[in-house]
């Protein structure tokens, strides 16, 4: 996860508190989504960015996961997300990211 995005997330958590925030990921593959999830829950795995050694424990979801999809209107979903749901399997995302939700 880009170091500047890490800095932005860290600043937002300092301003609003981790309890008031949730991370919604839009990465185009499961591995990328997992990397972001790991960074904002346990800390930067590469130990290079502002979140190195910082466990924010934010709740993490991918925008294509069923729980988030239920919150999005059908029109918006069709326009922006339906196609990507064929590219990445939402079920696979849920399995991958739920690990990080259990830990947080």
């Amino acid at each position: 996860m880009d170091q500047e995005y890490q800095a932005t997330v860290k600043k937002l958590v300092e301003e609003h508190g981790a309890d008031n925030l949730m991370m919604i990921i839009g990465a185009p593959d499961v591995e990328g989504a997992e990397l972001v999830a790991e960074t904002v829950t346990e800390g930067d795995p590469s130990y290079a960015g502002p979140l190195a050694g910082v466990s924010l424990g934010l709740p993490v979801y991918h925008v294509l996961e069923p729980a988030i999809r239920a919150e999005i209107s059908e029109d918006l979903y069709k326009e922006h997300l339906e196609m990507m749901a064929m590219v990445i399997d939402p079920q696979e995302l849920e399995t991958a990211l739920s690990k990080y939700r259990k830990k947080s």
């Binding site: 990465a27 185009p28 593959d29 591995e31 990328g32 339906e82 196609m83 990507m84 064929m86 590219v87």
Partner: peptide, 29 residues
């Protein structure tokens, strides 16, 4: 790109184009 968690960029793009073809009924899922 893969060892740094940046994904397989061409493959993701090809999946996207293939998904578009499937959504338009040009190919089966």
């Amino acid at each position: 790109t893969l060892p740094m968690g940046s994904g397989n960029v061409p493959l993701t793009n090809y999946k996207t184009i293939a998904a578009m073809a499937a959504m338009r009924g040009e190919i089966g899922r």
